[in-house]
Amino acid sequence: MSSPPSPQANATHRMFGALLVRHLPGSRHAPLSIERADQGLFLLWLAFMGLLAFAALLLWQAGAWHRLIEADPTRLTVVIVLMFIGCSGWAGQRAWVLGRQRTALDLAQHTGQHAGSWSGEFLHGTAQPGADRASWLLVLGERAHGAHEMAWWLNGIQLKLGLLGKVIGFSILALNLGQLESFDPSQSAQLLKSLTGGLGIALLTTVTGLTGNILLGLQLMRLDRFADALVADALALSLASDGASDGHRPTGP
């Protein structure tokens, strides 16, 4: 059980790319067995980044990156790519942090030692007499999910930058058409080149924004699911501890 998502997070999750990610097979499942291993989430992120780096290398060898930069004078595609790289690096760091918290919770389940972790503070706080478990659960949920909201917002910005590029591209196309006073067949090649320039900006920025939105959304969705399982397991361990404590209480007067 985790704290309810904020309205801002719900609005961000309705983005087209994030909505598509939510319907991919396995995106909303509980943590996989490999993620449950020691730093498994981080290792899975490394494998995903390796695939993306290999694909980027193939595109570079094919000259796609050079043509992409040349075809987009607005440089919005470069901004989107840099934003994706930065957010993906943060997602890897977050996967490492969540993995350490998972290890600490597993240690608490087996040995009862739960010092120096989010779940440890939660278990220690809820074990106090008269403790408000709902308040402690909100604190744990904020620590597990709160940092993800900014990443989801930046993920939506990628898509919006792509749409901004589409608007700029079609605006350039409309301006070129507006400046056309007469059609000269001898200048048709130059005319088509000027008209397709705006269309190229619109398509390239939109495709780049959508691709970045989907790939980053996939990483953030797995982080959310892992954090959900962390909060749920910590709550289950707290309830089990309370049940064990209640079972040793005398029932008679």
Rank of each mutant, 00 (worst) to 15 (best):
E149Q: 12
D106G: 12
P73K: 11
I80V: 13
A11P: 02
L215N: 05
A234K: 01
L140S: 00
L105G: 03
F54S: 13
K160N: 12
L195I: 06
Q128C: 02
A240Q: 15
H66F: 12
L154T: 01
G125I: 00
Q187M: 13
T211V: 10
R22E: 14
R67P: 00
A240Y: 12
K193D: 15
A30I: 05
D224H: 09
R36N: 14
A18Q: 11
G212V: 00
G99N: 07
A64Q: 06
I214M: 04
L154W: 08
L98R: 03
S171V: 13
R28P: 02
L105C: 05
L164W: 07
L199G: 05
L192I: 14
R143G: 08
Q190F: 05
A227T: 05
S2N: 14
A104V: 05
D242S: 08
T251Y: 11
F84A: 09
A189I: 15
T206A: 07
H23Q: 13
L239E: 15
G92R: 00
R75A: 14
L191F: 08
G243K: 13
G141I: 04
L82A: 14
M83I: 06
L177G: 00
R75Y: 14
A240F: 08
G141M: 03
S33H: 12
A18E: 08
T12M: 15
